Simulated scan of single mutants.
Amino acid sequence: MSKGNIWSKSFELDVNHTPEQIWQAFVDTSNWKLWNSGVKSIKIEGPFVSGTWFSMELPEGDIIRSQLVDVSQGKHFIDETWIGDTLIRVEHRIEAVRLGLSKFIYAIRTQGSDAQFFGEGISSDFPQVMTGLAKYLANKVV
């Protein structure tokens, strides 16, 4: 892997939900497909904790295998995926802004020969995914 070929970007969205409500949507992997159109299904191989592996089936049938590398309950989780010699690291972070208002942040960092290609491709739908999560939470809370 080339240490000099790094690409990163982050996205933020304020939502009228508590960190706990957002966290519950994150750990409920079986329902990711309800708010993320890029997910057909998820198979998690254990509890939602650091070290656990999961496989995500994409709508076109490809399967991506990833690992939860850093999970801090109610605050964030980071997953890593290797595609060839490129490492994709995605952070999903929750921050309380004030009572009833939170911010969630999706940050991606890729490193390797195809860092920019994979980084741009994978993160291109992050704004839609975040909006989908906000709508899912709004419908679930009502």
Rank of each mutant, 00 (worst) to 15 (best):
K9C: 03
K9V: 04
S10V: 00
S10R: 05
F11P: 14
E12G: 06
E12M: 08
D14V: 02
D14Q: 11
D14H: 09
V15L: 08
V15D: 06
V15E: 06
V15Y: 03
V15W: 05
N16T: 10
N16Q: 10
N16D: 14
N16S: 08
N16F: 01
H17K: 11
T18M: 12
T18H: 11
T18N: 11
T18I: 05
T18D: 12
P19C: 09
E20I: 04
Q21M: 08
Q21D: 10
Q21H: 07
I22N: 06
I22Y: 07
W23I: 00
W23Q: 01
W23R: 00
Q24P: 01
Q24K: 11
Q24T: 05
A25V: 11
F26Y: 15
F26G: 14
F26D: 12
V27C: 14
V27D: 09
V27R: 15
D28C: 12
T29I: 13
T29W: 02
T29V: 15
N31F: 02
N31M: 13
N31D: 13
W32G: 00
K33Y: 07
K33Q: 11
K33E: 08
L34W: 03
W35G: 11
N36T: 10
N36L: 06
S37G: 07
S37W: 02
S37L: 10
S37Q: 07
S37T: 12
G38P: 00
V39R: 02
V39H: 01
K40P: 00
S41R: 05
S41Q: 09
S41V: 05
S41I: 05
S41F: 05
S41N: 12
S41C: 03
I42C: 06
I42R: 05
I42L: 09
I44C: 04
E45M: 09
G46Q: 05
P47R: 00
P47E: 03
